[in-house]
Each structure stands twice: as structure tokens, then as C-alpha cells.
């Protein structure tokens, strides 16, 4: 079976990334698209049965080893695994592909449930418990982001549509005084970095990694604070990615 394991690993990570953002619809879309491709190839799709089969063999092999007077249980189980692979004409990599497909399918099923249950929640519920994200917002054609209001801070998460060549943390740092903000020393390498910014009323730590950004903002809560934070995030993002 000549299947690129990286394709399904990448798909799982993309789904996870969108769950992290709170964009369940996009996450489900990615899961469905990838699973549709996998389902077309019967041999690849059935590798999940093989993974489940190996799990069953390992579980069954662990039982009754004393009655069978097996001294070296670990080797005995390994032999059962090898035997099953030969019988099924499968390789260790097929088991790994199967496990990853099971994982992706499981994510999709849970996303179905979450989308449905989220639809039953009122905005009041979500504001009360502070666990459900606000709507998915956009900054031009550059990225999607969400703002979550927690008791002690605002958590802003964003995903870029396209990966950046370089995060402009230093450019951002130089522009901060225009907004009455200062920055601590930035820590940065090729595709990731962190920056702490502050003023008399606000503290935020910013983390960037490949396509993701995370802003954790602490500020005295006033009537218009969330709106101010939203505008600040939009402005800072533009400096970071252009």
C-alpha cells in the first residue's frame, strides 16, 4: 500500500487547528474532504479494520497467558502481531494509516455533534459560561480570528489563510509607541516568536507559529474594552503579516 501518511497527519492537524480556533464548520469540511479521498481507495480505507484487528489480538493475547503457561508474554504477543500481519498480507505502516483514519473519522463524528449542540445554545448561555466562542471574524483577506472573553482576560486566536514568509515582530515593535504601547524583548526564530506588550491599562502576550497567532490580553474591563481589543488585534495583525 503506497499511501503517504503525511497527508492524513496534515489533515488531522488542520482539523485540530480549526477546532482550536472554534471554526467547527471549517474543521468538518477539511475532515470530510480528506475522508472522501480516502474512502475511494478500498485498500487504504480498510486499513482501519486491520488496526482494530491488531488491537483485538493484543487484548486477547494478554488474557489467559498463565493458563497457557506462557513465560515470555511480551515476545508471545509480538509473535501474534507478526503472524496476523503475514496472514493479512499487511505491513506495520498499514496499521498506522488505519489508526490515523480512525482518529480523523472520530474527529468528524464529534464535530457533527458539536455543531448540532452549539446550534441549540443561546447567546445568553454562551456569554454566561464564557466557554463558547464568538462568531468567526475576518481581517480582510488575511485571516480568521475569534475572541473569547474569560473572567480575567481576552483570548484571541487567529489562523492565516496563507503562511507568512516571516513574522514581522520587530516591525510591529517599532510601531507600538504610535498606539501608546511598549514592548518587552521579542523572542523569535524563523517561523515562530513571542512578544509581550503593555501600557498603563493593558498587558498582552502575543505568540505566532507558522499560520497561527494567539493574543492573550489582560485589561481593566470597561464598556468598550472588547471593541478596543478587537481593533488593536486587527491593527497589530496587519503589521505582523505585511
Amino acid at each position: 500500500m503506497g499511501y503517504d501518511v503525511g497527508v492524513v497527519v496534515n489533515a488531522i492537524n488542520e482539523v485540530d487547528e480549526n477546532i482550536w480556533l472554534g471554526d467547527y464548520k471549517k474543521a468538518k469540511e477539511i475532515a470530510n474532504r480528506n475522508l472522501a479521498g480516502i474512502e475511494k481507495d478500498v485498500e487504504i480505507y480498510q486499513s482501519q479494520d486491520f488496526a482494530r484487528d491488531l488491537r483485538r489480538i493484543i487484548r486477547e493475547s494478554k488474557k489467559g497467558t498463565r493458563e497457557r503457561k506462557i513465560e515470555d508474554v511480551d515476545s508471545w504477543i509480538t509473535e501474534r502481531i507478526v503472524e496476523r500481519m503475514k496472514e493479512a498480507e499487511r505491513k506495520p505502516i498499514d496499521n498506522l494509516v488505519g489508526i490515523l483514519i480512525i482518529h480523523l473519522t472520530s474527529l468528524r463524528d464529534m464535530l457533527d455533534f458539536l455543531i448540532e449542540s452549539r446550534g441549540q445554545k443561546t447567546l445568553e448561555n454562551s456569554r454566561e459560561n464564557g466557554t463558547v466562542r464568538e462568531e468567526i471574524l475576518r481581517i480582510g483577506e488575511k485571516c480568521r480570528f475569534t475572541i473569547q472573553s474569560l473572567p480575567d482576560r481576552w483570548e484571541v486566536r487567529a489562523i492565516l489563510d496563507e503562511p507568512v514568509k516571516q513574522w514581522n515582530l520587530n516591525e510591529l515593535k517599532s510601531r507600538l509607541p504610535d498606539f501608546g504601547l511598549s514592548a518587552a524583548e521579542a523572542s523569535k526564530n524563523r517561523l515562530s516568536g513571542t512578544l509581550e506588550i503593555f501600557s498603563q491599562e493593558l498587558y498582552a502576550d502575543i505568540l505566532v507559529q507558522e499560520k497561527q497567532m494567539e493574543f492573550s490580553v489582560r485589561s481593566v474591563k470597561k464598556e468598550n474594552t472588547e471593541e478596543r481589543i478587537r481593533k488593536l488585534v486587527e491593527t497589530l495583525t496587519i503589521f505582523l503579516v505585511t
Binding site: 501518511v5 497527519v9 488491537r55 489508526i99
Partner: peptide
């Protein structure tokens, strides 16, 4: 990061 798969949860579910 996108090419690193974390499969320990599957191991805890009994998969090889």
C-alpha cells in the same frame, strides 16, 4: 508542525 502526528491518545485506547 503540520507533519507531526500525535498518536499517543490512540495508544491509550489500545491501538498499536
Amino acid at each position: 508542525r503540520f507533519l507531526i502526528g500525535h498518536t499517543r491518545p490512540e495508544k491509550k485506547r489500545g491501538f498499536l
